[in-house]
Structures are given as structure tokens and as C-alpha cells.
Design a protein around this nucleic acid. Sequence first.
DNA 1: GCTATTTTTTGAACGCTGTTCACAAAACCC
DNA 2: GGGTTTTGTGAACAGCGTTCAAAAAATAGC
Lengths: 213, 213
Amino acid sequence: MALDKEETGERVLAIAEALLNAGGMDNLKARTIAEQAGISVGSVYNLFSDLDGVHRAVNMRLLDRLGAAGAAAMADLSQRGITDVRQRLLALAGAYVRFVEAHPGSWPALLAFNRRRPTLTEPDAYEARLDQLFEIIASVLAGGDFDLDDDSRRIAARTLWSSVHGIVTSGYAARSVRRQADEIDEQIELLVAVFIRGLERGGTFAHAGTRAS
Amino acid sequence: MALDKEETGERVLAIAEALLNAGGMDNLKARTIAEQAGISVGSVYNLFSDLDGVHRAVNMRLLDRLGAAGAAAMADLSQRGITDVRQRLLALAGAYVRFVEAHPGSWPALLAFNRRRPTLTEPDAYEARLDQLFEIIASVLAGGDFDLDDDSRRIAARTLWSSVHGIVTSGYAARSVRRQADEIDEQIELLVAVFIRGLERGGTFAHAGTRAS
DNA sequence: GCTATTTTTTGAACGCTGTTCACAAAACCC
DNA sequence: GGGTTTTGTGAACAGCGTTCAAAAAATAGC
């Protein structure tokens, strides 16, 4: 064979990602991958345990790319001497929006992948890759003048990320394409503004709220 | 035949929902439905256009139930004379958390369903059912003393919903089961508190933020 | 260089899937 | 009861993920 084993593996992943991006989850077919990669179906199963394994590997690449995009956005702001918390949070959210737009099929496929089986997945490696994102957000929050202890800051970072994630991938609510993009921007700006204002005011939060049932 | 056509349809939907709830998306099989409903495979396709149609119908039922749960939570608070915005928002979020917990397989399946194809779905009827949820949230916000015009309140309601949704269905980040539930509660309380504090302060938001990069 | 041995690649084959459709059964009409 | 329409049926088809005996290639030993 002309190509290294690892090299063919990466070619398979590139093909798989393109397939996912173009046609979503059920466009990822073993025979299509084999055909486009110039190998046989069996060889695909030689490189990966099964199609889920291929999809998982693609997802890892996506998460790495997302983390890199976030880090790059922060590095860019640092280089331009921008330390304002609001601008940094908006830049992070903007990076995520652009990432999702750049992966219109493969990112929804990643999200759908984790929701396929009802509690059987073991996202060990997923978490590690998401933790770096949380740490970026937490470090931005640490730059503000909110007096948050480490744990509160960690919670706040996760809350912010989940909220932005929820807004961006709300999925529903798409009257028109342009209106959708505008509304996402509006919601993100509201969220970030409200978060900063809310955190600025009172110091620590006393999570003693009795939730009404 | 002993049963009404509509009645068999609903039985099929109940079976389909149970299958989805037990095994996720790829547990919804035409032959299983037919067997459990005591009809033939062809009859399933007589009642619904295809399996996607079955899943869509199940999803409608779920959205109706979610809307009813939200409305019921608000009615309960009204009956108890509770008008506090914070408590109402927490009650709504709590209703959503309980709803998700009560539908561990079928709700993820609904979310995965919308992410299967990359921009081809037409969630017309979905929107209508979600709009009632947004209106509930908006009406709660209207009860607070934030001076928001209708449009800002609409945006804020959607933002709140998307954020809670993102937090609850963040999926990843599940160190342990109990720790996960606690963390969701913490995040929701932080979100609601921060939102209320943030909205209380300044009046209208001037979405003139220049996003970096 | 040649054979023996190991490793890798192959694609036909298997079981399962969604979906169809000619046919049968039931229901309806008068 | 006979003709017509509607409804139900399940064998059949194409496509899927996955496997695995066999073929091909690579490696080792000499």
C-alpha cells in the first residue's frame, strides 16, 4: 500500500467529516467512506472499531478545533491589548457562533450523536476537551472585578457556556435565515450584558433559594 | 376491526413513545411497533407517512406536555398567591428539569431528531408549541418591575429559555449522577439570579456592542 | 532469490432495517 | 347479495452495518 496506516486513517476522518457536514448523521455510510477513500469496506473496520468509532474520532477533531478557535480569539484580543470582560466574552461567543456556522452539518451531528442512546455514552474524552473551554471562560471571568471564589467562577463559566450553547443551537425559532442570525446576536449580547451586570452587583451568591414545586 | 382508526393511531404513538423513551432514536422500529400494536407493518404506514412521521407526532405530544407542565406550574403558584418573579422563573425551570427527567429517552430523541438533517426540517408546528412557552416566560417577566418594551421582553424570554435549555441538556459534564443534578440546580439559580439583577439595573439595552474580531 | 510465516486487505455474505405494493379482507352502499 | 370502495396484509426489495474466510501483500529467515 502506498500510504501509511495512520495517514489513511486521517483521510478517512476527513472524508467522514465532509460527509457528516454535507448530509448529517445518516449520510455517514461505511460504503461511501470506503469508495471515496479508495479502500474496501472491511478496511474501514480495520482502522476503526465501527462507524460510531469513526464518528467519535471526527467529534474529537471538532472539539479540538473549537477549543483552538476559542484560544485564538483570546490570543487575538490580548495582542490588541483588549482586556475588557464584556468584549472578551462576546468574542468567545462570536467564535462559537462562527464555528457552528462553519460546521453546519458535523456540529449538529456531534450533538445528535450524544443524544442517540439515553445514558449509555461515556464522554470521558469529551469532558477533557470541554474543560479547556470552561477554563478559558473562567480565566476571562477572573479578569473582571467580580469577587468570585474559584468554585463560583467555575460554575459561572459553565453556566455561561451552557447558555450561549443553548442560544446558538436553539435550533427551533428560525423565522428566516437573516432574522435568525440577528436574533442570536441580540440574545448573546443580552445574556453577556445581564451576566456581567448581575455578577457585578452582589458578591457571592447564596444558593439557598427554595424552588417552588 | 375492533378499534377506531384514530384510536389505533394513538396506541401506536404511545408505543412509539415508550420505545423512544426506553432505547432512544434507533429503538423506534416499524416492525416492533407493528408487533406491539397487534397490526401489520403496512398498517403503520397506513396511519403515518413514515417513521419520521411517527416520531414527529410523538414529539408534538411531548411539546404539548411540556407546555402544559409549564402552565400548570404557573397556575399552581398563582393559586398559592406567589407572584415573585424569581420564584416563578425557578418554578418554570424546575418544571423543565422534571420534564426532562421524566422523559429520559424521548426528549433526547426529540432533540436528536431536529439535528439529523442539516437544515432541511420545517419546524412550523414546533414553533407554535414553543411560542406558548415563550409567552409564559414573557408574562412572568412582565410581572417584574423591569421596564422592558414588548420586543425586549420577547428577546429576554427566548434568551432565558435557551439558556435554561442549554444548562439542562448540556449533556456533557456528568461527573456523577447526583453531582450533575446539583450542578444543574446551581447553574439555574445563578442564571435566574443574574438575569433578574441584570435586568433590574439599567433600563433598555442598547445593543450597540461592537463585537471584537 | 525463494519459501514460510505473519499481517493486512478484500468483498461476498448475513441479518436487520425502512418502505412498497399486489393482493386479500373487510366495510360500505343501494 | 353483488358491486364498489376502503382498509389491512406481509412477502419482496433495496440499502444498511458488520463479519470473516480467503486472497494479497508484507515480512522474516536463510
